[in-house]
């Protein structure tokens, strides 16, 4: 139904004048310097499904031109979607950020 479907449709973009960055900035993230999720790009290199890229609600998995995946843990909702949709052993090492860090919801 999405009439904005573009080829690939993989990069988040603006809606109603709001960029994806602005959308993410509405939530508060108390960032910890140690990543709580680690993605092993070598395992991703020959992954054809790339489900994490479309499914992560924070769009934290970004495919690179060389066919790898760049991951940034900073604006993560800690939802679990990525490790659930990924079916490659060892690609994602998932845990929670240190207590008190990470996303803080207010009106949810």
């Amino acid at each position: 139904m999405s009439d904005t479907a573009r080829g690939g449709m993989l990069e988040p973009h603006a809606w109603g004048g709001l960029s994806f960055q602005e959308r993410m900035a509405t939530a508060e993230f108390r960032i910890h310097h140690t990543p709580h999720i680690v993605v092993d790009g070598r395992v991703c290199a020959d992954c054809s499904t790339r489900e994490c890229v479309v499914a992560c609600p924070a769009a934290l998995f970004v495919p690179t031109a060389e066919g790898g995946i760049v991951f940034n843990h900073e604006q993560c909702f800690e939802c679990g979607t990525c490790y659930l949709v990924c079916n490659r052993e060892g690609a994602i090492t998932w845990s929670y950020p240190e207590g008190g860090h990470g996303v803080v919801f207010r009106r949810t």
Partner: peptide, 16 residues
């Protein structure tokens, strides 16, 4: 979850 990847539709686009 299993349909998101297959449909190549991003969550925030579906809300939109």
């Amino acid at each position: 979850l299993t349909k998101l990847g297959a449909q190549k539709a991003r969550p925030e686009e579906i809300i939109a």
